[in-house]
Amino acid sequence: MLQRYMAAKNDRECGLLSLFWTFLLSFRWPFIAAIAIMGVSYGVTHQGISDPERVLPIVISQILPVGIKGLLVAGLMAAAMSTFDSTVNAGAAYWVKDIYQAYLKPGATPRQLVVQSRISSILIVLIGLFFALFVKHINEIWGWITMSIGAGMLIPMLARWYWWRMNGYGFAWGIVAGMVAAVIQKLFFPEWPEYFSFSFAAGISLAGVILGTYLTKPTEKKYLENFYKKTRPFGFWGPIRTILPAQVLAKVNAENRRDIIATFFAVPWQIVLFLTMMMIVMQRWDNFAWLLAALVGLSVGLYFTWFRHLSTEVKVDEK
């Protein structure tokens, strides 16, 4: 999804894409709620389901009718395969383009790049299978991915937008430090609660970002200026913001303030949207009415603080 955001022509298209993506996501939660409700119903009328990870297989095999059952299994397999192949391809691309061709063999031929891509793809799959040998429960690996690996990647992903001094080395050091911290936690401290794992990986990642940034040269100013003109982020961009005329800078500041205010509408709007869709499946019409009213109110606030300004993108080249 990130690639689609990056490929958008302007702020308006990117904003509309995010709105459409959130709307599509809202259909995921009614599906999950429906599976959970059918699992609870089956557990009440039949033998209880002691393992939560068996709810979906039991619902598919015991409750869903023929036809729907096959359609759902095909859809789940397609979703799993698309995620799997995109992850493998992305990992191979990182190795081939960002490491092998960039540093190890800049003059590599197309054939050599293809060979490296195939080898790295095989290695990624083998490494994944190796780690799978030690995973007993889906929730175990999911918690580690989101709270440890995810935490290790979170700081560099955010800091690159809001801190002008951060460079590629800071990003790389932060990612590597966070990933290493996540692996160490998994191998030596698997009993840690998820909130502690998150803090540990995020803290190590932050240290990597700071060290990698300050121990290396800053990014050339012309690239920072070009980036700021296109994205106009808020945060610690003081030395770069000085290139803008005062009247344009005032418009950028106003845009930043609107974005910050809109965030306080957008986050609850998304949560309420998901809950509203779930209430339809649960047939809790009283809760549905309250959530729908909240959704309408948040939508109005989001319209005035964000949506209606999508077409008024600040032009930093204005004089």
Rank of each mutant, 00 (worst) to 15 (best):
I63L: 14
V115M: 10
P65I: 03
W95E: 04
V96H: 05
T87W: 05
A108D: 00
A74R: 00
L72H: 07
G70L: 04
K105Y: 07
A93G: 01
G75A: 07
A90N: 10
Y100T: 12
S61V: 04
V66C: 01
A74Y: 09
I99K: 00
M77L: 15
G91C: 02
P106R: 11
D98M: 01
V115H: 07
S61E: 12
M81S: 11
K97G: 04
I63H: 04
K97H: 10
S82L: 15
G91R: 06
V96M: 04
V66A: 14
A92K: 08
S82G: 01
S61G: 08
L113C: 14
V73M: 13
I60A: 03
S82N: 13
N89L: 13
I63A: 08
K69V: 01
V88R: 01
D85I: 13
R118C: 13
R118N: 14
Q101C: 06
R111L: 14
G70Y: 05
K97W: 02
T83Y: 11
V115T: 12
L104E: 10
S61A: 15
W95V: 15
G107A: 03
I68Q: 05
P110C: 10
Q101L: 07
P106E: 08
L64N: 04
S86T: 13
M81Q: 04
L72Q: 01
A80I: 11
P65E: 08
V114E: 14
A90G: 09
S117P: 00
A92S: 15
T109N: 00
Q62D: 12
D98F: 02
A80S: 15
A92R: 06
D85S: 13
K105L: 11
L71S: 05
L71E: 03
P110M: 08
A80N: 11
K105C: 10
T83N: 11
W95P: 05
Q62V: 03
D85P: 00
D85V: 15
Q62M: 13
D85Q: 08
Q116E: 13
Y103G: 09
G70S: 08
M81F: 12
A108I: 07
T83P: 05
L76G: 09
A93S: 14
A79I: 03
Q112C: 02
D85A: 09
W95Q: 03
Q62W: 03
Y100D: 11
L76R: 08
Q112I: 02
F84V: 11
A108Q: 09
D98P: 05
V88F: 03
R111W: 10
I99C: 07
G91A: 01
Y94N: 12
R111A: 15
Q116N: 13
L64H: 08
S82W: 07
G91T: 00
Q112A: 15
F84E: 02
G91N: 05
K97R: 07
L72P: 11
A102L: 13
S117M: 09
I99P: 03
S82A: 15
V73D: 02
L64T: 07
Q101P: 03
A74N: 01
G107F: 06
N89R: 10
A108Y: 01
I68N: 01
